[in-house]
Structures are given as C-alpha cells and as structure tokens.
Design a protein around this nucleic acid. Structure first.
Lengths: 364, 364
DNA sequence: TCGTGCAATGTTTACGTAAACATCACGCCC
DNA sequence: GGGCGTGATGTTTACGTAAACATTGCACGA
C-alpha cells in the first residue's frame, strides 16, 4: 500500500513538509487508518483493537503491545465520526455567542474551551452577529445538525427570557449566561448585583453623598442588574438617586457620559457599568479639567487588564470570567452525564472590588 | 477515572428504551429521527428521503412534498455523524490558538467563525495554554480525532518555523498566522513590516530626528517583524537607531518602558509595538510629567477600539483582523476543495495609519 | 480422565447516510 | 403491438466503531 496508486497530482510544492512524521504510508489523501487496518497488521480482530483503543480490560499484555505497536506504526487515530454515530454523541459542546469582541466573552469562551478540552470535549463556535430570534434559532438548528452534545448560549438578549424563542427540543442541554431564565434553564453568571453593591458602597463609605451611574445597553441583562443594584443600594442608604446616564459598553458612550457629567457640579462619584466606558469617561473628565479622583471618583466594572493603566489607575469590580467558563462546562457535563434536558437554577460567581487610584474621599 | 463503569445510562440499550421522551418539549432524550422514520411516515424508501434532503433531481414533486411534510412533522434533522462517516469529512475547521485574550486573536477567530459559518462550516476551537511542542502536537492529535477538515493555527511561536514540530500528515490542510513558514505552509498575516514603516515614517515626517521603539515579546514573529521594519526604516533614512526597549504586549511592560523613556532627554518620538503597551507608556509619561504629544510623540499598533479614548487619543496602525480571518477561511476552503495538503505562500493584509492626537512635530 | 468455568479473542450486527446498482412503469417508435 | 429507453423509486452496500453474542483454549477440581 505504500505509495499507493491513488496519489494526488503532484502539486506538493511544500516539499512534503508532512513527510517528516515517520514512515506513515500513503501520505496525504483521506485514507484514514481504520481499526481494520491496525487489526490486519497486528494479526488480531478489529474488536480487539477496539478494546485496546478504549482501554477495556481482558486483553492480554502481549496482544495489547502488538496492537499498540501497530497503531503507532500506522498512525492510527480513532474516527470520531464513526464513534459519534455509534454512541449518538460527539463529545462536543456548542457555544452560541453574540460577539467575541468584548473582553468578557472572549475570556469566558477561552475558559470554556480550556476546561472542555480537559474533559475530552471540543467546543464548536457559532457566532450570531445580529441576535434576532431567527438567527438564534438558526444557530440552534445548525448546532442540532452538528450533533453537539450540549449548547452554551452567551447572548445578551431577552429573546430567551421573553420566551419568544423556545429552545429546540433536539438539543437536550442548555446553559445560558447573562439571562434571568434561571427558573427554566441552567444559568451561570457573575454576581452582577453584588459587584454593583460593592462599588456603590465603596464610594459611599468614602464619604460621597451619592453616586451617579453610567449604564450598559438596555438589552443587556447584566447592565440591568448592575443598574438595579446601584439604585437599590442608594435607596437603602437613604441617598438621592441621580438620573442614570445611558451607555452601550463602548468607550465612546462613556466619553459622552463623561462630558455630560463634567457639567454636573454636584457629581463627586460615578459608578460606570464597565471599564471601557470608564476609559472614555476618564478622558472626558480630563479634557474638561475635572481631576480624578480629587474632584470626581470613578469606579468601573470588569477589571480588564488595561484598567490598571488608565489615568489614573481604575478602581473597579473584578469579574472572574475564567470561573464563569469553568462552571459552565461543569454544569453542562453534569447534565450530559445525567442525561437531563435542563437543570434549572442560577449559579452566581462572586466578584471583588479592586481599589486603585480613581477613588478618594470627596473634596480631596 | 476508573472503573465502576463507564456511566452508561443503562436504559438506553436493548430496544425502545431510547424513546424516553415525555412529550414535553425538552423532555425528549436522544430521540434521533432518522431518514428511515421519515421514509416510513412518507411511505417511501429512505433513499428517496435522502434525495429530497440533498436536493437531488429526479424526485417527482408530489413525492417531494410528502417527504418534506414528513420531515417537518417529525422534526427531522440530518445526522452529521453519519454524514461525516459516509463522506469522510465533517464540514468543520479546527482552530488551534494560543490565547483568546489578545484583541487581535479574538477578533480574528470571530471573523473566521463568521465566514466559516457562511460557507457551511463550523469551527472547533482548541486552545493551547503553553505552546510547547508537546502541547501543539497534542492539539493536532485531537484535531485529527475530531476529524476536522482543516486546521488553522494561530500561535505566536517558532516551533512551527523551526521545524521542531512537524505537522501531522493526517490533517491535510494547514494555515498559519503570524509565522514565517510561508515557504512551507499557507500563511495569512497582517503586513507587519508595512505597518511599522508607516508608523516610523509618520514620525520622521513630523520632523523627529529619530524614533525609539518598544518591542513585543521575542517569541512573537509579528513583534520581530515590526522591530525589524522599524530599524530598517530608520537606517534607510540615515537616522541613528536607539536601543529598543523590550516589552511583552502587556500594558505593564509598556509602563516600564515609559518610565525608562521618561528619563531619556533625547527621546521625542516612540513607536510602540501594540496599543496596550502604548497605554502603559502613556501613563508612565503622564506620571513623570512628560507631555504627549508636546514633548514626546507616541504611535501604537493594532488600533484597538479603546485607543481612540486614551489620553491623549492614540495615533496607531490599524490592523484589519476581520480581513485576516476572512482570508484564512477563504484559503482553507480552496485547499479543502482542491484537496491539497498545502498551498504555500504568504498572504499579507495591508494596514493603515490612523492619526489621532498622540503625535505632533517635536518641540511643539 | 473429563467436564466446568472463565479469560481471551473472534464474529455479527447496528448506528444513519448516500452512492451504486436494480427494478418498475410508462410512453414512444418502428 | 412489442422491444426499449427514460425517468422515478427501491434495494444493497459500505463507511468505522463497539456492544452483544459466539467461540476458543486452558486451568482446575472431582
């Protein structure tokens, strides 16, 4: 079979870069090595190869060695398509997300991928550029076709919450991040409310009379939670609640809010719903000659790596995205293994406040 | 990790047990609807269902309608495992990457995912936390097992370049970003040298005598390219070449470089190898009372969204990550379709300079 | 000595799909 | 009007794996 007749037309410009790997017969081409090939070489049945491949007991050492040697020689690799067909599962977790652009999402996805890999699962990514019901549903359909074993949804919308999108029944495990659908689905999220509370308390504790707020987009459940907690915390402390300034997560919207805030003589403290907006806000205040933290204190949310190098270094609420990803995978695996469609409940990952130089007592 | 049994949901075998569903959406289990089921309901053979499913001609309209109706009624979805087994391909592209943490990587991956999806391909992600040869090789092995049709590698290392890692022969298509292996593999990359040249020329054109440089990590080919182009451009202009300051992409390393640079009275212009380091550098200069751009001009690289809101807004080299991702997919698909192992050559995506407020004529 | 029983290995089969081949019905031409 | 082509549909088979079942061989006890 070596150098078999079905070779490709010779366009191997690369000079057989792949030839390096020991004498693998055949070379490129599809021709995967199957168990049958290994079995033939090792002089056993393919079932024995299967047993060795899966670490089943009941194979004598000498036989096992032969098989392993044959596997090595042929460069055998199990065919996951066949395996998936056999078992009805792919060892793959699908991830549907809106965008990788935000730090949070990409960090979460990375953690998901890492932990999934550790458990022998690969992840399949489907981005949904515009989160309409159709698109989300389409993504689910694709996931179904791809026969993933579970789907993790990372989308900041209320489609799921509003029940306008019903998750298709074919996919029997779903986990949603950033959603309040905890009663119906399995949800993992950062403890948004707790983080916001910490931020506001920090500012109040410093002596500020009240705290202004720049929100995230209305469509984000996380943004809503943060705003809600900000308001509640102020109310519980008996402080006045200034009108929230609308933002959309972008530095630009933070900049706009900063310009507006610079003209508010009363404002001595701001809680900004994420670090990027805080960056824009800091620049606006700087441009307007408002000194942070002497005149105005600023607290962000996320603790992106850069925030320690803002001017001034930003006090912010740290989100543990890696932990969120880890718990997503953990939950999903539990559900796969127990073969449950859903495991309702919300799993909140705690936050912590990172105090840097953007906050101080008022009138400092 | 052992024994007691490989957690079969025992009931699933031995017959109809897999029909476990309780009718409720979500209560169903495996419940795979196969072509045979559709065929039975439609009163045709499964082959006819296959023909309808794949849009083959030669099916009479009335029959087709029956089949489609049956599909709808049963919620039929093709099983990609079986399909993959049949065809020997998965319609999946594997992506091996070092980290999603950098803006560039996550944007590139997002673009890859988007364009792949448009072509009917899903992407499977495997992160390699520590890019040792073993880990990279392991990732390839996993990819092989997953039966992806192609692999895109996004790793900033020289393992591939140095030839210490030989890409396994089982996977017949490979594209590498950020590598100089263009002679052996198919490479798509931003035109690093061109971007760096633009940055340096911009500063020289403003009247600066020379330009300092904060580099990326030594292991990054992109960083090397930028540094090389910086040096060459200065030399060609007959300017002195100051000693480069080492960085590692992080804002922190940029901060350190900034502190060092603040003490260089000669320094009037810096080209920083990425925006994050520029952020740290700006803060260091600010702390030391060195005014940007009046005393020192700064140019970054990447044009991350935040850079427009640095203090001052950063002049930087724009990288089109989306385009890089798009071309990766395009190349990979060409290779898959032509069934080539490799399509050597380097595809460079151009950059452009975005001038903001961090640069000015010297002594301004 | 011959079963017995168990451990090691082989054989059959099914998973869902689709190519290749087989059949069937119908209408057309000589 | 009968052979025959053509288009519509059915049947067989293979893809690679692994559970279920079948077979072999050997040790041990009666």
């Amino acid at each position: 079979m070596n150098g078999g007749g079905r070779q490709q037309p010779g366009t191997t410009h690369g000079g057989g870069a792949q030839r390096g790997g020991s004498g693998v017969p055949g070379g490129r081409r599809k021709q995967r090595v199957s168990m049958a090939d290994v079995a033939t070489l090792a002089g056993v049945s393919s079932q024995t190869v299967s047993r060795v491949s899966n670490g089943h007991p009941g194979v004598v050492d000498s036989t096992r060695e032969h098989v392993l040697a044959a596997m090595r020689e042929l460069g055998y690799r199990p065919n996951s398509a066949a395996r998936a067909l056999r078992y009805g599962q792919f060892n793959t977790i699908g991830v549907i997300l809106f965008s990788l652009a935000s730090t949070g999402n990409s960090r979460t996805v990375e953690a998901i991928a890492t932990h999934a890999a550790a458990e022998g699962y690969a992840i399949t990514l489907i981005p949904v550029d515009v989160p309409t019901q159709d698109n989300v549903l389409g993504a689910f359909t694709r996931m179904g076709e791809l026969a993933v074993d579970a789907v993790i949804v990372i989308i900041e919308i209320h489609l799921l919450d509003a029940g306008t999108v019903t998750l298709p029944p074919g996919v029997h495990v779903v986990i949603v991040v950033d959603s309040d659908a905890g009663d119906r689905y399995s949800v993992v999220d950062t403890d948004q409310a707790d983080g916001a509370r910490r931020a506001v308390h920090h500012l109040l504790d410093l002596g500020h009379r009240t705290v202004w707020h720049v929100t995230g987009p209305r469509t984000s459940y996380a943004a809503q939670r943060r705003a809600q907690a900000w308001r509640t915390t102020l109310e519980e402390a008996g402080r006045p609640v200034p009108p929230p300034l609308p933002g959309d997560w972008s530095a630009e919207s933070g900049y706009a809010a900063g310009l507006a805030l610079a003209d508010e003589p009363d404002c001595t403290a701001v809680f900004v719903a994420n670090d990027q907006m805080a960056l824009g806000l800091l620049r606006a205040l700087h441009e307007r000659g408002r000194v942070v933290p002497d005149e105005i204190s600023v607290v962000g949310f996320d603790d992106i790596p850069d925030s320690a190098f803002f001017i001034p270094p930003l006090t912010t609420v740290h989100q543990d995205f890696a932990e969120v990803g880890r718990r997503c995978v953990q939950r999903v695996l539990v559900q796969i293994r127990e073969n449950q469609t859903s495991l309702p409940g919300t799993d909140l990952v705690p936050t912590r406040l990172v105090v840097r130089n953007s906050t101080a007592a008022p009138g400092g």
